[in-house]
Nucleic acid binder design. Sequence first.
RNA 1: GACCCCAUCGUCUAGCCCGGUCUAGGACGCCACCCUUUCAAGGUGAAAACACGGGUUCGAAUCCCGUUGGGGUCGCCA
Length: 468
Amino acid sequence: MIVTRFAPSPTGFLHIGSARTALFNWLFARHHRGRFLLRIEDTDRARSTDAAVAAIFEGLTWLGLDWDGDALFQFARAERHAAVARDLLAAGKAYHCFCTPAELEAMREQAKAEGRPVRYDGRWRDRDPKEAPPGVKPVIRFKAPREGATVIRDLVQGDVTVANEQLDDLIILRADGTPTYNWSVVVDDHDMGITHVIRGDDHLTNAFRQTQLYIACGYSLPQFAHIPLIHGPDGAKLSKRHGALGVEAYRDMGYLPEALRNYLLRLGWSHGDDEIIPTAQAIEWFNLESVGRSPSRMDFAKLEHVNGVYMRQSADASLAEAAAPFLAKVAGRALTEMDLAKFAAAMPSLKERTKTLVELAENAGFIVATRPIEPIEAAAKQLGPEAVPILRQLRERLSTVDPWSAAATEAAVRALTEQTGLKLGKVAQPLRAAMTGRTVSPPVFDVLAVLGREESLGRLDDAIRRLN
RNA sequence: GACCCCAUCGUCUAGCCCGGUCUAGGACGCCACCCUUUCAAGGUGAAAACACGGGUUCGAAUCCCGUUGGGGUCGCCA
């Protein structure tokens, strides 16, 4: 049974890079019909917040990444971590270190100044605890092997080896008795039966120390898979300006969760030339072997494209539902049943020309606009004095159309152009401007149909009146 | 600085492990054209890459070494 986990620390929003890590873990577990667990790493009491925990839950839920069982809060297991640390101490595989933080800091400074590697020198490793300075509460350090090498057989990075002399004796239990990250991770991953640790490759060096800890504890090693980080468009670390945002920010920008999943999946993973990969297909295909080893850059243009594809594939009703909050924002008021009905009716032509829900709602603004519509500058140009005769004829023709439909109104307008010899564009543009207050919109006859006879004729009247 | 990792079009990538089928394929973006009531979508086409230098080999994007460039890590944070 394959067991993966996503283990974020609740110190901020659910970062987009973390979301991808969660996605890979989820996909891997679902592919193997295993379990995907969630562990909240809240051992840093000062920085962990309830709001961040909520953001993680909400972000994962929105993304559709469901976890198995209840989320485990790591801090609740502090006593267990301490107990195992004491076992290690009793077994002589760990020791008390009485260095003060200030002393450690000085050690680092000096090493840096002398150009030496920054490492704990092991001064309490073999020293008699009786020599301990008074009043200093000790930490527990792991007695790391000093000879040989540690190798991790990473499913993505391949075999990576580091000489043990590069690693120092890390602290596993702080002076206050709480566990440090590398320690609690090892104990928890073991206790939770995690078989595959899939995480960002910023953890690769942690994997060496954790491997030593696993061995010292007599635990069997999980499989590691360190996936490359996501960079900003400039190749540097993803910054806020570049999109290092929480997933809720992507939601607010109008991206569909399934589209974001697809985009994130293709960042660093591929399946031949396939680009649009629905989730069910992704679960079937996902594997760790096809995860690349080089970092990839965030590309909003591609994300938008993928989102557009998913929007066009979405059912009109569900798209309207997803976009309703965005439309309400454009309207500046709560939507009525009628608004929603029109929105859904306009969806086929609306979704064809947008890439995000925000854009979709903006383009649907004509639906919730109230008369008289104030045209934007470019549209106002279409509604100049020279447009008056056209608008009048339009008004006259359209008023006789019955029943009211896109096809019927189009037939009426086309008849008009044939009679007058005017090009369709000459007539359609002013009509569009009158209906939507803009120069760009869905096909104008669709707009007419969605708006209905009364509203359409009313808007036409408004435009004519406006010129008098 | 030390250690580790990475390196194919601007971007995401296929190909690399198992050298020849690669005059390096796809996608996004960009440009042109077609379609067209606007804008899109769609269609067609174009420009665009094996970081560099050495090897190995009959032959290298593919294997080896080095250089350069980029990234990650070096906390009583996670």
